[in-house]
Design a protein around this nucleic acid. Sequence first.
DNA 1: CCATATCTTGAACGATCGTTCAAGATATGG
DNA 2: CCATATCTTGAACGATCGTTCAAGATATGG
Lengths: 203, 203
Amino acid sequence: MPRPPDDDLRAALLDRAVDYVCKHGLSELSLRPLAKALRTSAALLHYHFGSKDDLIAAIIEAGRARQVAAMQQLELQGDLSTAEVGRILWRAWSDARWEPLIMLFFEVYALALRDRSRFPGFLESAIEAWLRPLQATLPDPDGPRARALATVTLDGFRGFLLDLCATHDRVRIDAAVELWLAMLEHAETAPEMTRRFFPDAAS
Amino acid sequence: MPRPPDDDLRAALLDRAVDYVCKHGLSELSLRPLAKALRTSAALLHYHFGSKDDLIAAIIEAGRARQVAAMQQLELQGDLSTAEVGRILWRAWSDARWEPLIMLFFEVYALALRDRSRFPGFLESAIEAWLRPLQATLPDPDGPRARALATVTLDGFRGFLLDLCATHDRVRIDAAVELWLAMLEHAETAPEMTRRFFPDAAS
DNA sequence: CCATATCTTGAACGATCGTTCAAGATATGG
DNA sequence: CCATATCTTGAACGATCGTTCAAGATATGG
């Protein structure tokens, strides 16, 4: 006989909260301005999400889910070289519409470096969850050579994104990415270079 | 006849404030706990530094000065390849004692992405002030090829540092850096690869 | 020693913070 | 329509924030 629960209310609220935090940042987030932007009250946020920390955890998880969803849109199957994977990733994530989410990622990353317990598992996942799929596209995915190539790909990628967010100098950074991809391409097709460092790695 | 000003008081206070912020972070900085750690009062911080924003600006500038001082200790003169420069930089900055300052850098970087006016010129300087010296070590320093190589060096470098701060997986990242340096080495000694992208660049 | 500018303190200011709570609005099964 | 669980609100809580201010401690030139 009671009013039935409406789960869409919380989901819709969370979705708009993610947009707000992508736009305004996390470190200076305050519940009252957030609630006002969402045309609701701070008390309602507590009702639906619990404490502020719980809300932040939900927002970050939702942001991560958006990233995963966007990744699944990409077609990364088949025999792709590291350079080809890198090019696809760069084309996708350097798009301006992802910039707010990328900024949120870096902001949480920096905050998590200070206090890991505030964002349990975030840093570990931020590295390992990307490293593993990158390794999977390489020959001998569990070898040290694949792990090193994946690390170069991921970390270079992150560095370029940091640069792009700060300068928006797309011409310079695109040129650097292309050069970097050519370097990756050569490292893969000239295994004697990588074998210099990983004599044990199967080719 | 009055008591003479003692500039060392402010300088000593600032130096310890930088240590405190390196350790505890900037985004949750509060004047009272900071003052307590410095065995003084919040009012004294206002007396010496003005507003909290002015204090933060002074702390960040002092942190930047530490980086510059550390860079000047490095011997980066002479004919060094990009890979050699990269190796020297990595050996120096991946040292654990710089980690707090590196974390502060990334924290300010992320905060500045949200609100550039809070840290005027920080992002521009964070890129350009490093890009220019890197270009200077290359042939045809003002050409697009040098700029692309410098960008690959700087951005890769930042990505590796982000990774290292999060995982402390020195074995994996050191291996990746070595592979990456070999790639840079090859890109420099095989200019036909870079010339593919920069046909106008003088060699 | 004394005048005086510098340094330092503790208390207090209003503002904003996350959170709680009582009260009411809302919507549906019976 | 009615009972009732869900949803929402506005006010209020104590805590903490940056900042101000009056008062006193400190140290040196004269």
